[in-house]
């Protein structure tokens, strides 16, 4: 009974946080004018459509708690490492203040939320990057959070799902940010060799060090439609090669065509796709 009350409290907390995400300036901006087709969609309708434009199908970025509430079974959410926060290890001027301001504005402590929960009754660890926090950039706290999610999944022999959305490295943490690529990739390699199952889901946009580390190491790799996915950003490439990039370059569909994505899954079908993949990879389903 006590346990049940706790679960309900956690659920209310997640619902509260995801509702708050629905009121964020980012959501207001895309509701006013879709960056894909320019349509003005009433906020309530956009929310009902999971923040996918009903006119052009553009998948707008969503917050981590909202994402978790869309995929996890009711009353199964339990947040992991929720108080993990970034240190200003390089004493970078202004970094502490910027972190404080972002924490107030988003209600997040870092650019990722990790949780343990169930999808169609199957237990898993889910880690979601949130682009509202420093563009989901990977500093040491984000790298540590991802690594701990991997280690948690390995310890309890659970499947792991990571939703990526990131501008790359966190500039303010310099080289320590770069080292998170090695740390997260090493943790995933261990997890993989121990037989762990990892689904990586690319969402818009995922570039830089996150693409070049944990996001590209899934046993199964999914992407939301139209997401920008790449190592170098399109502007840097245009400057380097001195020409305009073709339409659709570095989008989910381009990556699928080039062999880097198993499937592109619209947001509304993601929960069912994940449930099926968890079922197919369940250890008890192995023969012999």
């Amino acid at each position: 009974m006590d346990n049940h009350l706790f679960l309900q409290r956690r659920e209310r907390l997640m619902a509260l946080k995801s509702r708050r995400e629905g009121k964020s300036p980012q959501v207001r901006a895309v509701a006013g004018k879709c960056p894909g087709c320019g349509a003005a969609i009433p906020k309530a309708e956009l929310a009902k459509n999971l923040y996918v434009c009903p006119e052009c199908g553009r998948h707008h970025p969503i917050g981590a708690y909202l994402r978790l509430s869309l995929i996890l079974d009711p009353n199964s959410f339990r947040e992991l490492d929720e108080r993990l926060a970034a240190p200003n290890a390089l004493n970078f001027p202004g970094y502490d203040d910027k972190l404080k301001a972002l924490r107030r504005a988003t209600g997040l402590t870092e650019g990722a939320v990790s949780a343990r929960g169930r999808i169609d009754g199957r237990e898993c660890v889910a880690c979601v990057l949130d682009s509202r926090f420093f563009m989901g950039s990977m500093g040491s706290a984000l790298g540590e959070k991802v690594t701990r999610a991997v280690e948690h999944a390995q310890k309890y022999k659970l499947p792991l799902i990571i939703f990526s959305a990131s501008g790359g490295a966190r500039m303010q943490e310099g080289i320590l940010s770069l080292m998170q690529m090695a740390k997260t990739s090493a943790a995933l390699e261990r997890f993989s060799r121990a037989g762990g199952f990892y689904i990586s889901v690319f969402t818009h946009p995922t570039t830089g060090g996150v693409t070049a580390s944990f996001a590209s190491l899934g046993d199964i790799t999914l992407a939301e439609p139209g997401a920008l996915i790449g190592f170098a950003g399109p502007r840097v490439i245009e400057q380097t090669i001195g020409e305009k990039l073709p339409d659709g370059f570095q989008r989910s569909e381009y990556l699928e065509e080039h062999g880097f994505v198993d499937a592109i899954v619209p947001r509304g079908e993601l929960r069912a796709a994940l449930a099926r993949l968890l079922m197919l990879h369940e250890r008890g389903n192995r023969r012999g």
């Binding site: 070049a212 190491l217 790449g230 190592f231 840097v236 380097t240 090669i241």
Partner: peptide, 18 residues
Amino acid sequence: PGLEAEARGQGEAIASTL
């Protein structure tokens, strides 16, 4: 940071080397 490098999976190549 080039077009063909991206088309052939620069991110994946670095990640799997790490």
